[in-house]
Design a protein around this nucleic acid. Sequence first.
DNA 1: ACAAGTCTGTTGTTTTTACAACAGAAAAGA
DNA 2: TCTTTTCTGTTGTAAAAACAACAGACTTGT
Lengths: 221, 221
Amino acid sequence: MEKYISLLKKIKLFSLIGDDDILSMLNCLNATVREYSKGEYVFRQGEYIRNLMILAEGRLHIQKEDYWGNLNILNEIRIGEMFGEAYITPDSGTLISDVIAAETSTVLFFDMERILTVCPSACPFHTRLVKNMFYAISDKNKSLVRKLGYMSQRSTREKLLSYLSDEAKRQNSGSFSISFNRQQLADFLSVDRSAMSNELCKLRNEGMLDFHKNEFVLYEV
Amino acid sequence: MEKYISLLKKIKLFSLIGDDDILSMLNCLNATVREYSKGEYVFRQGEYIRNLMILAEGRLHIQKEDYWGNLNILNEIRIGEMFGEAYITPDSGTLISDVIAAETSTVLFFDMERILTVCPSACPFHTRLVKNMFYAISDKNKSLVRKLGYMSQRSTREKLLSYLSDEAKRQNSGSFSISFNRQQLADFLSVDRSAMSNELCKLRNEGMLDFHKNEFVLYEV
DNA sequence: ACAAGTCTGTTGTTTTTACAACAGAAAAGA
DNA sequence: TCTTTTCTGTTGTAAAAACAACAGACTTGT
């Protein structure tokens, strides 16, 4: 567990908490760690979830395949982001989507009950932890709302532009790279890949942006 | 504030907490209450938010108008649901959407800092409250994911069916009523109203469902 | 009860998307 | 290095959605 300390320090959940205390907290929270290789399932639809997870390294996709075989990437979990928070209530059913490692990933599992109950050993950082946990869940919410923003755009072009401009803002540069390949981006935005590819090229021809592989450049108006 | 106790008892945030304690907790959390009449703005885009809100009565819409005047209902807040949770982190900016009362509504405002910090007077129900707060935020996340499920459907027909069947499940009956009118439903699902209206009638002609005004009946296959 | 305004269904036209199929480029594997 | 597989762009066609415009039903307010 010690070897993850440097990873953990970087994520919001443990911000403002010293190295030494992180270890004791992990213990206090019954934390466990597991690595997943690319393509491996972290959870499958129908499973019961009793933990709250944080992604310490790598990248995960929350995805769902419908009756007709269409894959939908509901959300992408990035480093420091939380997942499983929708299943911590007593009456929440089984998982309705798959969680899959988009690349080699390290996942932290926490005992939810321990987080929410005041630490029996009066762990001095519990207050800080609860606060950080709220921040993490709040970030998660933000990313869901952000995605709703892309999805509520009516056309493929608008979906693309809202996603790309958002990504540019997030990476603080008009020149940035994305983690999706074309098919994944289409699955994420819930559009047809070829139509999206077509639209991307139109945007390029109109001089609004440029791209090579997963590197994008947005041009000023 | 006392007159809201009966309202508060019904919402999850105060579940498993006795009448007497609710009052002292409201005090502990610096809670305030305000009523909004139908159509009134609770918050406007660009405002700073420093509280966490719970809807005690009525119905709210989180909505956004884009450059071209298209209205998008990002989410509907129902009784007992929380909002503003995405803005509790120190570095979250201003509100990116409007919050508007879809009908006469009662909103509770809480001091976020008080919730997250251990009660100085050692309020005995603080642990319970924190847990309930997590449950509430978890519910909120669920509703966002649920909406992403509708939005990720490719066609208007599929969006309608996924929304309606979900609503039937939620109301435990194939016969139910919805709170949206046609335009609002279209704005919620991000589709064109007339096209949606058309699709609804097609579904009715095919014998899959029936409706009068906001009353819907789904038929078995 | 009447007038004004809103809501809903309907239709035809234009635009956009999905779908299918394919070829060249790039990547992975032997 | 050569082969196989995956990824991406491209095109044409069919299906679907957006858009605009309108009429009747229903509401609201006076």
